[in-house]
């Protein structure tokens, strides 16, 4: 249940990125900025759902420290950094830089999603968590 929901959210974020990249490639900067805002919001909301709701619940069983959840949080920070750099490149109307950060964002995010979908969410499904409650709480999280 968690796995399906979160995997779909990954796909929804991808779907917001593709048209943004198109606008950057065409140097339609107003349109790019217009598409960047909801894209960034969706990404940050996804991270918040994990960091505020799902991960703490999982850590009750797995413990904190240097484990898989710690690695996922580090990658969130890397991705946040690229998203900010991408936003700056769009504002500066720098096509090469924006496409470059976009490409880096995309692969970084995809390999991160893959680890979550193949391993982390599978763990979440197997742990004795109250999945319905977690899902309800995650849906209440708002992007910042």
């Amino acid at each position: 249940m968690i796995k399906e929901f979160m995997t779909q959210d990954h796909r929804d974020c991808d779907a917001l990125y593709a048209p943004l990249e198109e606008a950057i490639a065409a140097q339609a900067w107003d349109l790019a900025l217009e598409r960047f805002v909801p894209f960034k919001e969706a990404m940050l909301r996804h991270f918040a759902m994990e960091e505020e709701v799902l991960f703490p619940k999982m850590e009750e069983f797995l413990g904190g420290g240097e484990g898989p959840i710690h690695v996922m949080k580090m990658e969130h920070n890397q991705i946040r950094g690229i998203i900010d750099a991408l936003g700056e490149a769009i504002e500066a109307k720098d096509r090469q830089k924006a496409l470059g950060y976009g490409e880096t964002f995309m692969i970084m995010t995809q390999q991160h999603n893959m680890k979550e979908e193949q391993v982390l969410y599978t763990m979440a499904e197997q742990l004795p968590l109250d999945k319905e409650q977690i899902l309800a709480q995650m849906q209440k999280v708002e992007g910042r």
Binding site: M74, Q78, G81, Q96, G100, Y101, T104, M108
Partner: peptide, 17 residues
Amino acid sequence: WFHLSSRGFFDIPTMRE
């Protein structure tokens, strides 16, 4: 890019560069 940024280097060129 991944290995360098994991070590904290953020002034590196992007993948396309």
